[in-house]
Simulated scan of single mutants.
Amino acid sequence: MNIGLTFDLRKTYEAMGFSKEETAEFDSEETIDYLEEAIKNAGHRVSRIGNIRDLVENLAAGARWDLVFNISEGMYGRSREAQIPALLEAYGIDYTFSDPLTLALSLDKAMAKAVVRASGAPTPDYIVVDSMDFTALPPLRGFPVFVKPLSEGTGKGIDTASVVRGESDFKERCEFILKTYRQPAIVEEYLPGREFTVGIIGTGKNARAVGTLEVKLLDNAEPLVYSYANKEFCEERVKYILCRDEALVKNASEIALTAYRSLGCRDAGRVDLKCDEAGRLSFIEINPLAGLHPSHSDLPILCALNGIGYDELISLIIHSAIERCIEPGANEWWKGNCENSNRS
């Protein structure tokens, strides 16, 4: 197959004047090199496309691919992760990972939690603060609470001050999120217990949990939180431990798969969970477009610790996408009208 590769390079946006934090979700050239090599090792040809502007230019020039391996996060808007998949769907081109609805829904942490809670999975109570006009304190169980941007990833907007223990700090933190990230803040009951992330591969009934990873902050890390800085410098600040507790892994996997399926995630993803003071696990958030650097990103780290090499992970993702794309009725109209199109 000829597989196109869509992505956002950090250096491209840094050259445009964006900061390292603003580009935190984007990829290094090294990640793209590893990914291209893994796709080739799976027996496919690779065409590097780039970001959404590059994709538009390619499509306008008549380029087409059998499948697009999409890891583009997008830059603008709360539906930014959905933009390339939406464009590919308009052209009838199959792609890896979740569709526009799931990507937009998952990036809005409050909407994602509402869907997950409706599916029966536990998640902390929360409110959304979209302006500083509010007068009441959050209708939760009291302080401490956890305050973070509504629609960010990679720990952006999260540091030790995200754990808020009083009214004045609460208002100050909400104002900081609103002004700095120009989006609402989501305020959750703070869970002080252990933190885990669950890796999932597959789609729908074929989705399976491939491991549960505990995130342990080292003494030199920012305390209490898996923050942007801790993620950026995870090699020095974080220890990742593959969980072997069968009961905990079973519970974590059940919650993660419930969340993953209820949100309609596809091919692969990662679900973050945390324990309360009694050790009970709850859904925190989901990443349906997980990072894929082999030694820096949580999903490949988790898979490697559980015996799934990087090339195998990428091959499994492609296999899942192909399997669901050849289901009866999938893009049949477009494919029937484009059988003789020139694929570049």
Rank of each mutant, 00 (worst) to 15 (best):
M1S: 10
N2L: 15
N2A: 12
I3Q: 06
T6H: 08
R10N: 07
K11H: 13
T12H: 13
Y13A: 07
A24Q: 07
T31E: 05
E36I: 15
N41R: 14
G43E: 04
G43S: 05
L59N: 11
A60C: 15
V68Y: 03
V68E: 06
N70P: 08
Y76Q: 08
Y76E: 08
R78K: 10
R78V: 13
L87K: 09
Y91R: 14
G92I: 06
I93M: 03
D99K: 14
D99S: 14
L103D: 05
S106C: 12
K109I: 10
A110H: 07
A112W: 07
S119P: 04
P124N: 08
D125C: 09
D125S: 13
V129F: 02
D133F: 06
F134I: 15
T135H: 06
L140W: 03
R141I: 14
F143Y: 04
P144C: 03
V145D: 01
K148H: 03
L150S: 05
S151T: 15
S151F: 06
G153Y: 06
T154Q: 08
K156F: 09
G157N: 04
R165V: 11
K171Y: 14
K171H: 12
R173F: 05
C174L: 10
E175N: 15
L178P: 02
E189D: 12
P192I: 09
V198D: 00
K205H: 15
A207E: 00
A209C: 08
A221Y: 00
L224T: 15
L224C: 11
A229T: 14
E232N: 14
C234G: 13
K239A: 12
R244H: 12
A247P: 00
V249T: 06
K250H: 05
N251P: 05
A252Y: 01
A252L: 00
A256C: 00
A259P: 01
D267F: 07
V271S: 01
V271A: 00
L273T: 03
I284R: 03
A290F: 02
A290H: 02
H293F: 02
H296T: 11
L299C: 06
L299E: 03
L299M: 09
E312F: 09
L313N: 11
L316P: 11
I317N: 10
I322C: 13
I326T: 05
I326N: 01
P328V: 01
G329Q: 03
K335V: 10
C338F: 14
E339K: 14
S341I: 10
S341N: 13
